[in-house]
């Protein structure tokens, strides 16, 4: 499947300055009390996102769903800098890799010294759908301030055996169980209008 454009969505508002040299590279500067919500769906495409929370009360919520197949090499880089006090960020990243593809994810949160009252959250889950696919995720947390709340988690692996078995005991074939689990995998982060892209990709690759 070829999608020339990288599907994305974000809320347009005055308090968020946007710079993007091309569709694979995005920089957002969120000003005082600005709120950024953005979603990206790289399908066998690279993505570089940088967010600078540049004013008190600035918030960012970045969601990314990635899909990779065949022998594609994906590089995903999502960085959030809490430049000032009392800023909040959230990153939710989920993806599937199959075939002989490989995904390299670097996701970072930086909270410099004396930037108190910040909250930064990051969560990633990657599912390997073939023995040869690879996902390597490197969370980068650079927290230099003490008065902050931060959490991050990353899990990569095949679909959990216990979830598949539970569905099989309810009469679903293994392939049906896989499809049911995968069809709901992205539900919490993917906006409705992008689900057809994922469905099409799954029909061809799962």
């Amino acid at each position: 499947m070829t999608i020339s454009k990288l599907p994305f969505l974000f809320n347009r508002q005055e308090k968020v300055l946007i710079h993007h040299p091309d569709e694979h590279e995005w920089q957002f500067i969120v000003q005082e009390r600005g709120e950024l919500e953005a979603f990206f769906l790289p399908i066998n495409q690279n993505l570089k996102v940088s967010v600078i929370l540049n004013g008190a009360g600035a918030k960012s919520d970045i969601k990314c769903a990635y899909l990779s197949n065949e022998n594609n090499d994906l590089k995903l880089d999502i960085q959030v800098l809490h430049k000032v006090k009392n800023t909040t960020s959230n990153q939710q990243i989920k993806g599937l890799a199959t075939g002989e593809s490989s995904v390299l994810l670097t996701a970072g949160i930086e909270i410099p010294k004396n930037t108190n009252g910040c909250e930064g959250y990051q969560n990633h889950r990657g599912i390997l759908l073939s023995d040869k696919a690879k996902i390597s995720a490197t969370p980068q947390l650079e927290i230099w301030s003490e008065d902050v709340v931060c959490s991050h988690g990353s899990a990569v692996g095949p679909l959990p055996d216990d979830e598949l078995f539970y569905l099989e005991t309810r009469g679903l074939k293994k392939s049906q169980a896989e499809k049911l689990l995968l069809s709901s995998f992205f539900n919490d982060i993917v906006p409705g209008e992008f689900r057809t892209h994922i469905k099409e990709w799954m029909e061809q690759n799962v």
Partner: peptide
């Protein structure tokens, strides 16, 4: 111990 199925 019933298995959790997030999203289903």
């Amino acid at each position: 111990r019933p298995t959790e199925l997030p999203g289903v």
